[in-house]
Design a binder for these strands. Structure first.
Length: 157
DNA sequence: GCCAACGTTGGC
DNA sequence: GCCAACGTTGGC
């Protein structure tokens, strides 16, 4: 089992929308490192922090789960989509996505500052200078700590 | 709104 | 294959 963090801007797609939708496809990732992780490493059942970026304060809102492994991001082939990429074709879709479903909302959000202030989270990718990846791995230890900071007893099932 | 950090593009 | 120019991300 692997653990992850995925960033979303709440004014584009907030956690509450995922809860309402019951599941969503994670479209629009246009970064190769992030794509490779979605394509090669994210597995069914892996847990994901749903992180709200570009928000005051930026924070982890809840825990989600991978419910479908990597497949082509069809928005890349849709000329009407803002994520359209003319280099994407059915033979070579270029970009990939996964589906996620909500598992548990944090009892209280965990802000970026709180995470920075917790020495036990040293080394977490999110906290590193210049870290911009919208999909990133999280260690089990860090995952558990942030869950507890969010008021969950443990990593949710 | 600013800007540092980083990724991508394209000319050479 | 280098690297300057440019675009984007995202915290502040």
């Amino acid at each position: 089992m692997n653990y992850w963090l995925m960033k979303s801007e709440p004014h584009v797609y907030p956690w509450e929308m995922l809860v309402k939708d019951k599941k969503t496809h994670w479209d629009g990732v246009r970064n190769y490192q992030a794509r490779n992780m979605m394509r090669d490493e994210m597995k069914l059942g892996d847990l994901v922090f749903f992180y709200h970026s570009n928000f005051k304060p930026p924070h982890v809102a809840g825990v989600a789960r991978i419910c479908r492994e990597g497949y082509p991001d069809f928005t890349a082939q849709d000329p009407d989509s803002k994520y359209f990429d003319e280099k994407a074709t059915p033979e070579n879709p270029r970009w990939m996505m996964v589906d996620i479903e909500p598992v548990k909302q944090m009892e209280n959000i965990v802000s970026l500052q709180e995470m920075r202030d917790n020495p036990a989270l040293d080394g977490m990718k999110l906290l590193m200078k210049g870290s911009r990846l919208s999909v990133q791995p999280v260690t089990k230890k860090h995952f558990e700590i942030v869950c507890k900071m969010g008021g969950l007893n443990n990593i949710p099932e």
